[in-house]
């Protein structure tokens, strides 16, 4: 295989990885703040893909552009969901939270199957098969646009957590819950915002993915698993870790599918997961538990 092919695969992997990273970031934010694992994360990504598919069908809206309104809508959904369904489970044992969210994922998948059927769907964009060429290296246009959009959303999120008072209050609640209650932070509201932000990430990422791949209702579990792998490799609760983990998994999977075969993709990312868990259980960017 030629050198330029490796460069190409590497770049494609990083670009796809940024979109994966954005999806995983949502899982990481929800877990890092609310301490609930969103087992329906991949199903929400699929839901966003359908939303993007429908918007494309109705208004010919580019899924990458649609990622913004879909993220906004998902924020509202996440906020309401935390306020109504998830909040009562925050102080319950983990296996009860697990049942709640797995139950939710099953509802989503079956609702999608009932409404849209099991067929795979895709969007035909004018630039779907275009690419930029850098010498001998070809890079898909769609991936470049998708990665750029993912970066924009991620940067906005970093800025929100870093520079706004609400962002600081969310970090405070994640840092010291007793301290948050002591100073009178409205923790339930902050949890709702965090769940909303988490779903906004997966909403934007799912919508962007609609421009990159085909989609079926059954894609959910594998995306949930993908997000888990990324978050654990990058380090639970670390935003930079989720993004870096996304790129790492993106590159690893892309390389594996050209060197060996596409079907070996998940094996490579799980091997990476096992390796990280064995050598650095807190993840690449995670802090060791005291």
């Amino acid at each position: 295989m030629s050198f330029s092919l490796y460069v190409e695969v590497l770049i494609q992997g990083v670009l796809t990885g940024l979109v994966y990273g954005l999806m995983a970031l949502g899982l990481s934010v929800i877990f890092g703040v609310v301490r609930v694992v969103n087992f329906a994360h991949g199903e929400f990504a699929v839901l966003a893909m359908y939303a993007a598919f429908i918007l494309f069908g109705l208004f010919h809206l580019d899924p990458i552009v649609a990622s913004l309104p879909i993220a906004a809508a998902f924020f509202v959904v996440g906020y309401m969901l935390q306020r109504t369904v998830v909040q009562p489970f925050v102080t319950r044992p983990q296996h009860e939270q697990f049942i709640l969210l797995v139950g939710l994922s099953i509802v989503i998948v079956n609702a999608l199957l009932l409404t849209f059927g099991p067929e795979s769907k895709h969007t035909d964009l004018s630039y779907s098969f275009d690419s930029y060429s850098l010498g001998a290296v070809l890079v898909d246009k769609a991936r470049v646009y998708g990665a750029a959009a993912a970066l924009v959303v991620t940067t906005a999120l970093f800025a929100f957590f870093r520079y706004t008072l609400t962002g600081a209050a969310i970090r405070a609640a994640a840092d010291n819950l007793t301290g948050a209650a002591v100073v009178g932070l409205d923790v339930k509201r902050l949890y709702a915002i965090s769940f909303g932000v988490g779903l906004a990430c997966v909403g934007a990422a799912g919508s962007i993915m609609m421009a990159l791949t085909d989609m079926t209702p059954m894609l959910g579990p594998s995306l949930t698993l993908l997000a888990f792998t990324i978050v654990i490799v990058g380090g639970l609760g670390s935003m930079a870790g989720a993004l870096f983990g996304g790129m790492l998994i993106g590159v690893a999977e892309a390389l594996a599918s050209v060197i060996a075969s596409p079907s070996i993709k998940s094996m490579v990312s799980f091997s990476l997961l096992v390796l990280v868990l064995a050598l650095r259980p807190q993840g690449l960017f995670g802090k060791a538990e005291a």
Binding site: L165, A168, A169, A172, D175, T178, L185
Partner: peptide, 25 residues
């Protein structure tokens, strides 16, 4: 208001941010 047992500051937030958190109400 409360100055709690064990101080309960926000360890990863800056001093400035910790102070601002006192004025969110």
């Amino acid at each position: 208001g409360q100055v709690a047992e064990g101080r309960q500051v926000f360890p990863t937030l800056t001093v400035h941010e910790n102070l601002l958190m006192g004025a969110m109400i």
